[in-house]
Write a protein that binds this DNA or RNA. Structure first.
Lengths: 219, 219
DNA sequence: TAGATTGTTAATCGATTAACAATC
DNA sequence: TAGATTGTTAATCGATTAACAATC
């Protein structure tokens, strides 16, 4: 019984399927064909069917896919049926933005603890969660069954914090620091490099501008 | 003089090259071979050479690449030598986090205006920039030569704001709202879908856990 | 049953890696 | 020059799209 490895390309499309199916479900749509979903999501029907069949036969010939069922199943694949307990390290603006974003909690991502090195922040509360001293980190992580650490701190601090989180058995790190973390392969890192994203936008704006002026490109 | 289209795969690696080269430059490193950079960045030397040669012959046989030169050139490719003027729409936690992150400004991304619908926020300042009423948006964008709009607002508001930005000639949108924006093809959208990112992490954690424990089918 | 639409195999396309001649 | 290392072509690998038989 071989478990075929599923490519990250497929995985990164799953949350988008999940989002569209959720919206369709909310409008009361009961079933949908890969063809119709293709039109809405602007991906090929073929890709939709291929992607889904990596996991299971979710559809039915001549019928299509049941929206609610597919929504639920993709949620399970993404692990949204289980609760995740997070610690947030860094209670600055970005950390607070994440702590206050209730939708994560709705999906089972519960922020159990918030940590910071800033003495002025320690003891204050962010959405009812007290900010703790970094000294408590290890004991807190172990006691509260934390599986994800969120790093919203500068890069040197992030490298250090990651090391400490790894040492107390964290499973995943959601890294907002502008640095590549070095962790054992059983710890998963998901990076959000905001400046990379902004640079990409900048590149594409420039490039588009150039290709437009001069030679008679499109439009 | 044909302009070969450069793939997004290549483009999304550029900011990372840029970051590593900046760090190398700061340590005083003068030159580097694709081989050595390969070791540091954990990508193949072949990929580095291929990527760079999409743009120009930056290196020299027998020598490698000049760190400072390559750093500067990649910066130019990414458009970091030009100033970008941004408006930030949504002065909540996330908007404030972005406004306060000075590094963007260092790279030429200047937040010229901040907008919100919340009457309590309007008139207040975020890092010396006053929060303005949405009514002023169009006139402000035109007057201040704005080329990028940053959307840190909920999805319905984001769709509406995007429409308004497009109507006054914006070039790019940095979208943090959890929705796919529909814009003309000359307007570039770069999405930061935080919940998608978190779901990917969740998937990978779950998957890793399963593949590790015993085995036999998936649960 | 006839029509619709999946699941899946085969074909194509694109991206990555390997190899090596060019050249500093 | 000899050694190093690029730029670039060719080979491989993987992902996407097309096609169609299976089947609801």
């Amino acid at each position: 019984m071989e478990e075929k490895e599923i490519s990250q390309a497929v995985i990164s499309r799953l949350p988008r399927y999940f989002r569209y199916l959720g919206e369709l479900k909310d409008t009361g749509k009961e079933r949908i064909s890969s063809q119709e979903l293709s039109g809405i999501m602007k991906v090929t029907a073929s890709q939709i069917r291929q992607d889904l069949n990596n996991f299971s036969k979710f559809g039915q010939q001549g019928y299509g896919y049941n929206v609610e069922f597919l929504y639920t199943e993709i949620g399970k694949i993404l692990g949204l049926h289980k609760k995740h307990h997070l610690v947030l390290i860094g209670a600055g603006n970005l950390g607070q933005a994440i702590a206050n974003y209730m939708n994560f909690e709705k999906r089972g991502f519960i922020i159990s603890g918030i940590f910071d090195i800033d003495q002025d922040l320690i003891g204050k509360k962010v959405r009812d969660i007290p900010v703790r001293s970094m000294e408590e980190l290890e004991s807190f992580v172990k006691e509260h069954n934390i599986d994800i650490g969120v790093l919203t701190i500068p890069k040197d601090a992030a490298v250090e914090a990651a090391k400490r989180l790894v040492s107390c058995g964290i499973h995943g790190i959601w890294n907002f620091a502008h640095v590549d973390l070095n962790v054992p392969e059983d710890v998963l890192v998901e990076n959000v490099h905001l400046s990379d994203s902004l640079m990409k936008l900048s590149y594409n704006i420039n490039r588009y501008g150039e290709s437009k002026s001069g030679r008679s490109g499109k439009q």
